[in-house]
Amino acid sequence: GTLHLNGVTVKVPSLEKAIKAAKKFAKKYNLEVQVHGNTVHVH
């Protein structure tokens, strides 16, 4: 999967790991997580 954090793109081995990391990051910075196919966006 691919993880987008505020314009930074990170390749992640699995989508589940990407979503987990995204949710952790989003919670910390009070951001929103959106999943588009195998790409996770945090903004």
Rank of each mutant, 00 (worst) to 15 (best):
T2G: 05
H4G: 04
E32W: 11
V8L: 13
K27Y: 04
N6S: 07
P13I: 13
K20W: 09
S14G: 04
N38W: 15
Y29D: 00
T39S: 11
T39L: 08
T9W: 14
N38V: 09
V40S: 02
N30Q: 07
V40R: 02
Q34I: 14
L15D: 00
L3F: 03
V10T: 05
N38T: 11
H41S: 14
N6F: 15
A22N: 00
V8F: 13
K20N: 09
K11S: 10
E32C: 15
V8H: 12
L31I: 05
L3Q: 02
H41D: 05
E16F: 07
T39V: 13
K24E: 09
V8T: 08
N30A: 08
Y29S: 00
P13Q: 13
G1K: 06
V8M: 11
V10S: 04
G7E: 04
A22S: 01
H4R: 08
N6L: 15
N6G: 12
T2F: 15
V8D: 03
H41G: 04
H36N: 10
V33N: 00
V40A: 04
G37M: 05
N30F: 11
E32G: 05
H43G: 10
I19S: 01
H36P: 02
G7L: 08
G37T: 04
H41I: 14
A26L: 06
Y29W: 09
G1Q: 09
K24S: 08
K11Y: 14
T9F: 13
V10D: 01
F25P: 00
H4S: 08
A21D: 05
L5I: 14
E32R: 06
G37E: 05
E16T: 11
H43M: 11
K11W: 15
G1E: 08
G1Y: 15
P13N: 12
S14N: 12
K27Q: 09
I19P: 00
E32I: 14
L15M: 07
T2W: 15
T9M: 12
T2C: 15
K27V: 04
N30K: 09
L15Q: 00
V35L: 05
K28V: 05
V40T: 02
K20G: 04
T39I: 12
H36M: 12
K23E: 07
H36Y: 10
I19Y: 06
K27E: 06
A21Q: 07
Q34N: 07
K11N: 10
G37R: 05
V10Y: 15
T39R: 09
F25A: 03
N38E: 05
Y29L: 04
N30W: 11
V33K: 00
N6M: 14
K17L: 13
K24I: 10
Y29G: 01
N6W: 15
I19V: 06
V42N: 03
T2I: 15
K11I: 11
V12D: 01
T39W: 10
H4N: 08
L3H: 03
H41P: 02
H43W: 14
V33R: 00
N30R: 07
N6H: 14
N38G: 05
N30Y: 08
Q34A: 11
Q34P: 01
F25D: 00
V35C: 13
A22M: 13
V10C: 15
H43Q: 09
K23A: 07
L15H: 01
L15I: 10
A18E: 00
A22Y: 07
G37Q: 05
L15T: 02
N38P: 04
P13K: 14
Y29Q: 01
N6T: 05
N38Y: 09
P13V: 13
H43S: 10
G7R: 06
V42R: 04
Q34H: 15
H36L: 13
T9E: 08
V42G: 02
